[in-house]
């Protein structure tokens, strides 16, 4: 959103950092409500099928879940620190921190890939005979698991794209110590990805 701030409009000399940040926040609100709707679906079905959800959750790998949680939290800290670095005119450190963030994000996806792969291997995917035989409640759990973590992974990819985009601009000195709102916005988006995972993690991996 923020990449089209009022800066370019009609070539007016006016840059509204607060405005583009507000735009980003509003966009984040829509994302929160987007996942919010899914959390409502989740809560209702969990409420209706408590035991099945517990049984199904045992199939999830808590270790991978925890590792991914740590990865996202650390990456959130690194992207936040890169803003401080840029503000202090330390361009090199800022870029390094962004690269670390991207590496962490990528390893999150790699973990996700193996985790999903294992589920498919065990016949725990929508439409699989094994899953179908487990009853409605477990089905609901896995439908929601795939849909919600899948949508979250999609946000991870978008967030990575956003970070790469601003990283290039930092490299070209288009974003500097007195013009860093776009980096802040990329950071805000990345924290949103983290924020959602903070809720996804206990709701899917930690029901015992």
């Amino acid at each position: 959103m923020s990449d089209h701030s009022a800066t370019q409009s009609h070539g007016l000399v006016h840059r509204d950092d607060e405005g583009s940040k507000l735009g980003m926040w509003l966009f984040i609100f829509t994302e929160i409500l987007l996942f919010g709707a899914l959390f409502i679906v989740y809560s209702v079905y969990r409420f209706k099928n408590q035991d099945a959800f517990h049984a199904a959750a045992l199939n999830l790998d808590t270790v991978i879940g925890t590792v991914n949680t740590v990865i996202l939290i650390v990456s959130s800290a690194t992207i936040a620190m890169s803003i401080s670095a840029l503000q202090q005119k330390n361009k090199k450190l800022a870029i390094t921190l962004m690269v670390i963030t991207l590496v962490l994000a990528f390893s999150f996806l790699v973990n996700k890939y193996f985790e999903w792969g294992a589920k498919f291997h065990h016949g725990l995917y929508p439409g699989a005979e094994h899953l179908m035989s487990l009853g409605h409640g477990q089905n609901q759990f896995f439908f929601l698991y795939f849909f919600m973590t899948g949508l979250h992974a999609f946000h991870v990819i978008v967030g990575m794209g956003f970070i790469i985009f601003v990283m290039r601009q930092v490299m070209r000195d288009e974003l500097t110590y007195n013009n860093y709102t776009r980096l802040e916005n990329a950071g805000l988006y990345w924290h949103l990805v983290d924020l959602i995972w903070i809720y996804l993690f206990p709701l899917f991996y930690l029901i015992h």
Partner: peptide, 9 residues
């Protein structure tokens, strides 16, 4: 105002 905040959006 001369336009909306994000004309391209």
């Amino acid at each position: 105002a001369k336009d909306v905040a994000f004309p391209r959006v």
